[in-house]
Nucleic acid binder design. Structure first.
Lengths: 112, 112
DNA sequence: GCTTAATTTGTCAATTATTGACAAGTTAAA
DNA sequence: TTTAACTTGTCAATAATTGACAAATTAAGC
């Protein structure tokens, strides 16, 4: 899968023969906005990933991978980050996990 | 460098013997907020990367790498993304670059 | 051609998130 | 116990994102 997340959604949609309006309804948004999402002019909201997965019967984990990879790639491209960035990111994920095990949960804003 | 970006800033600051107030002044923010940044309770604003680099005489590219890697890692950790995500991200960066060469600039919101 | 559905684009108010600022609290060193 | 350093809480101001609708364009069928 080399396409952007928007292109990916469009692919899924067209493949199943849905119109924008139909899919937008499933996802609980406006067809105009779905169009923008498909064309990379708006972001897909993370909270709709589950609905997207169930609509197309996709593995939610794979979908998350596509989704976040897309976000990272866009940032990298936009800010012209070195490829090294992803290597360092991997180290940092491991660091966070290790610290987490040692010290207990690191809380993010959206956790209670 | 395995630490978070906040820990990294603190390291730099303490190493040079600066107080929060001193560094905060250099960066144009409040010492209370810098404290939060160092402790991971607020995000460092991308627009201050240059100032941070010049204050500590750091290579801006390396700093960017640290900075964005930190952001990606936090998201990965927060949403429990598979490690695969970073591999896919790399593919997608290449895809974006290729598409860009073929079709001309992809514009982001903050470009004119 | 004409008609109608599908898609895209523009705009904007409303919601939501982020920031800057300051006060009040705690910790640490002398 | 005083003074500086740091941390935490709060909140208004600012900024970013979203949802919604109208209008414009494109595509398909007749």
């Amino acid at each position: 899968m080399k396409a952007t997340f928007g292109e990916y959604i469009k692919q899924l949609r067209v493949c199943k023969g849905f119109t924008l309006t139909q899919l937008a309804f499933q996802l609980g948004l406006d067809s105009a906005n779905l169009s923008k999402i498909e064309n990379g002019k708006r972001e897909f909201d993370e909270k709709r990933l589950e609905k997207l997965a169930s609509t197309f019967n996709l593995d939610i984990e794979k979908l998350k991978t596509e989704y976040f990879a897309d976000q990272f790639a866009k940032k990298m491209y936009q800010y012209n980050c070195s490829p090294e960035t992803l290597v360092v990111a991997e180290e940092k994920v491991n660091y966070l996990k290790k610290v987490n095990v040692k010290q207990g949960k690191i809380k993010f804003e959206d956790e209670k």
